[in-house]
Nucleic acid binder design. Structure first.
Length: 106
DNA sequence: GGCCTGACTTTAG
DNA sequence: GCTAAAGCCAGGC
Protein backbone atom coordinates (compact mmCIF):
# COMPACT_ATOMS: atom_id res chain seq x y z
CA UNK A 1 0.00 0.00 0.00
CA UNK A 2 1.52 3.27 -1.09
CA UNK A 3 1.25 6.53 0.78
CA UNK A 4 -1.00 7.85 -1.98
CA UNK A 5 -3.37 4.89 -1.74
CA UNK A 6 -3.47 5.27 2.04
CA UNK A 7 -4.49 8.89 1.75
CA UNK A 8 -7.24 8.09 -0.74
CA UNK A 9 -8.55 5.20 1.33
CA UNK A 10 -8.69 7.34 4.46
CA UNK A 11 -10.30 10.21 2.59
CA UNK A 12 -13.04 7.88 1.35
CA UNK A 13 -13.76 6.96 4.97
CA UNK A 14 -14.61 10.51 5.97
CA UNK A 15 -18.31 10.41 6.91
CA UNK A 16 -20.88 12.73 5.37
CA UNK A 17 -21.21 16.00 7.27
CA UNK A 18 -17.70 15.82 8.68
CA UNK A 19 -14.33 17.15 7.55
CA UNK A 20 -10.68 16.26 8.09
CA UNK A 21 -7.47 18.25 7.75
CA UNK A 22 -4.55 17.59 5.41
CA UNK A 23 -2.24 17.08 8.35
CA UNK A 24 -4.69 14.65 9.89
CA UNK A 25 -4.81 12.52 6.74
CA UNK A 26 -1.03 12.64 6.52
CA UNK A 27 -0.73 11.44 10.09
CA UNK A 28 -3.22 8.64 9.58
CA UNK A 29 -1.33 7.63 6.44
CA UNK A 30 1.85 7.32 8.48
CA UNK A 31 3.51 10.64 7.57
CA UNK A 32 2.59 13.27 10.21
CA UNK A 33 4.49 15.94 8.31
CA UNK A 34 3.30 15.10 4.81
CA UNK A 35 0.32 17.46 4.83
CA UNK A 36 1.76 19.24 1.84
CA UNK A 37 2.08 15.99 -0.08
CA UNK A 38 -1.53 15.16 0.79
CA UNK A 39 -2.62 18.40 -0.82
CA UNK A 40 -0.67 17.51 -3.95
CA UNK A 41 -2.30 14.09 -4.05
CA UNK A 42 -5.76 15.63 -3.81
CA UNK A 43 -4.90 18.01 -6.60
CA UNK A 44 -3.82 15.19 -8.89
CA UNK A 45 -6.29 12.61 -7.63
CA UNK A 46 -6.88 10.05 -10.42
CA UNK A 47 -10.16 9.04 -8.78
CA UNK A 48 -11.88 12.34 -8.14
CA UNK A 49 -15.49 11.03 -7.98
CA UNK A 50 -14.54 8.28 -5.56
CA UNK A 51 -12.51 10.54 -3.32
CA UNK A 52 -14.48 13.19 -1.34
CA UNK A 53 -11.57 15.60 -1.40
CA UNK A 54 -14.00 18.42 -0.65
CA UNK A 55 -14.18 17.06 2.91
CA UNK A 56 -10.52 17.90 3.42
CA UNK A 57 -9.72 21.39 4.71
CA UNK A 58 -6.77 23.30 6.16
CA UNK A 59 -5.78 23.05 9.83
CA UNK A 60 -7.89 26.07 10.81
CA UNK A 61 -10.90 25.09 8.73
CA UNK A 62 -10.09 27.30 5.77
CA UNK A 63 -11.13 26.00 2.36
CA UNK A 64 -8.06 25.90 0.14
CA UNK A 65 -7.47 24.59 -3.35
CA UNK A 66 -10.07 22.29 -4.88
CA UNK A 67 -9.61 21.83 -8.60
CA UNK A 68 -13.13 20.47 -9.04
CA UNK A 69 -16.20 22.20 -10.43
CA UNK A 70 -17.05 25.49 -8.75
CA UNK A 71 -13.66 25.79 -7.07
CA UNK A 72 -13.72 26.94 -3.45
CA UNK A 73 -17.31 28.08 -3.81
CA UNK A 74 -18.47 24.70 -5.10
CA UNK A 75 -16.54 22.99 -2.32
CA UNK A 76 -18.24 25.11 0.30
CA UNK A 77 -21.64 24.47 -1.26
CA UNK A 78 -21.13 20.70 -1.18
CA UNK A 79 -20.05 20.80 2.45
CA UNK A 80 -23.05 22.91 3.40
CA UNK A 81 -25.26 20.47 1.51
CA UNK A 82 -23.80 17.60 3.56
CA UNK A 83 -24.50 19.35 6.83
CA UNK A 84 -21.06 20.73 7.61
CA UNK A 85 -21.36 23.88 9.68
CA UNK A 86 -19.45 27.03 8.77
CA UNK A 87 -18.10 29.90 10.80
CA UNK A 88 -17.94 32.81 8.39
CA UNK A 89 -15.66 31.65 5.58
CA UNK A 90 -14.19 28.72 7.51
CA UNK A 91 -15.46 25.31 8.59
CA UNK A 92 -16.59 25.08 12.21
CA UNK A 93 -14.15 22.36 13.18
CA UNK A 94 -15.44 22.39 16.73
CA UNK A 95 -18.69 20.84 15.47
CA UNK A 96 -17.80 19.28 12.12
CA UNK A 97 -14.33 17.88 12.67
CA UNK A 98 -14.10 14.15 11.88
CA UNK A 99 -12.83 11.90 14.68
CA UNK A 100 -11.01 9.05 12.89
CA UNK A 101 -10.77 5.46 14.05
CA UNK A 102 -7.64 4.22 15.80
CA UNK A 103 -6.41 2.17 12.89
CA UNK A 104 -7.13 1.41 9.25
CA UNK A 105 -5.32 -1.88 9.16
CA UNK A 106 -2.00 -0.43 8.11
C1' DG B 1 18.10 10.55 -10.32
C1' DG B 2 17.93 15.68 -9.48
C1' DC B 3 15.31 20.04 -9.47
C1' DC B 4 10.96 22.69 -9.03
C1' DT B 5 6.34 23.20 -7.42
C1' DG B 6 2.44 23.14 -4.25
C1' DA B 7 -5.01 21.91 -2.09
C1' DC B 8 0.19 22.34 4.47
C1' DT B 9 1.71 23.69 9.25
C1' DT B 10 4.16 26.18 12.73
C1' DT B 11 6.84 29.97 14.66
C1' DA B 12 8.25 34.65 14.81
C1' DG B 13 7.58 39.73 13.95
C1' DG C 1 -5.03 39.53 12.97
C1' DC C 2 -1.78 39.34 9.04
C1' DT C 3 2.57 38.51 6.55
C1' DA C 4 7.04 36.15 6.06
C1' DA C 5 10.10 32.27 6.37
C1' DA C 6 11.42 27.48 7.14
C1' DG C 7 10.59 22.51 7.33
C1' DC C 8 8.60 18.28 5.09
C1' DC C 9 6.82 15.00 1.38
C1' DA C 10 5.24 13.22 -3.00
C1' DG C 11 4.55 14.11 -8.07
C1' DG C 12 5.91 15.57 -12.53
C1' DC C 13 9.57 16.68 -15.94
Amino acid sequence: MTFRAQVYEITKKIPRGKVATYGQLAKLAGKPKAARAVGSLMRTNPNAPRTPCHRVVARDGSLTGYSGKGGITGKKSMLLNEGVLFKKNKVNLKLSHWLPKKSFGI
